[in-house]
Design a protein around this nucleic acid. Structure first.
Lengths: 116, 116
DNA sequence: TTATCATATGAACAGATGAACATATAATAA
DNA sequence: TTATTATATGTTCATCTGTTCATATGATAA
């Protein structure tokens, strides 16, 4: 018969307490997960990687990546909200670029793991 | 009337071609997104961060993080499949730990971005 | 003004995903 | 053997997410 209370015994109390004391606040870990969630989509990764090389306008991104303008625009909003891209206007054209080097660092380190 | 063909003009052809030439293969970018998807969940991030400090058995992780044993086990499978954790058996107890330093690096760099 | 171009937004739908529940396996003890 | 403990697996379900379609906004040109 299964234990419906789900009350587990602590097997190694000292270790559990030690780890618990060193865990960052949940809020930080939540933000961290949110950040990686942004990188966890092929479309957004491709957009970010394209911007790795050069600033680009929305239309060109759509063309370059074989996506609809709408899809690109929606994803750019996500990237903007998470401060991963910035933009400048030139008439009716809007050029997007990576907002800082964190993006490059994060992608580079991920690449190391993937390319093994 | 909207353009139903979705055929965009290339606005800056030289830039588009240059970027296109430097893009990694889609397969790599797909794997990269898959990797970050694993980090993009609070439960998994909390598990990884706990393992940052010490190896832990499943039961203790559940207790430490206030999760059901089932939930932890399911997420450990995801982490295993992506080679982010390894494990050793000691009788019926299984101790999980981070598989290499990439995990620590990825988390650390993400933290820098979050803590701004 | 109107027309066109570049981008953004809102709604709706399909597919993905994480958690809970029930159950199964594997290892040890009685 | 049976019972118990530690962990894993399968299924269901509610929620989330990304895309498409239709439309709106903002900027320039005629």
């Amino acid at each position: 018969m299964p234990d419906l209370n789900e009350e587990y015994l602590c097997l190694h109390e000292d270790v559990v307490n030690s780890v618990k004391a060193q865990m960052p606040p949940d809020e930080i870990l939540y933000d961290l997960a949110e950040l990686y969630k942004v990188f966890g989509d092929t479309t957004r990764i491709r957009i970010l990687y394209a911007l790795f090389e050069s600033e680009l306008c929305v239309n060109d991104m759509a063309l370059l990546l074989g996506l609809s303008q709408t899809a690109v625009s929606h994803q750019l909003r996500v990237l903007k909200n998470n401060k991963l891209v910035k933009f400048r206007k030139e008439g009716k054209i809007i050029f997007y670029s990576l907002s800082d080097d964190h993006v490059k660092s994060i992608i580079s380190i991920g690449m190391e793991h993937v390319e093994e």
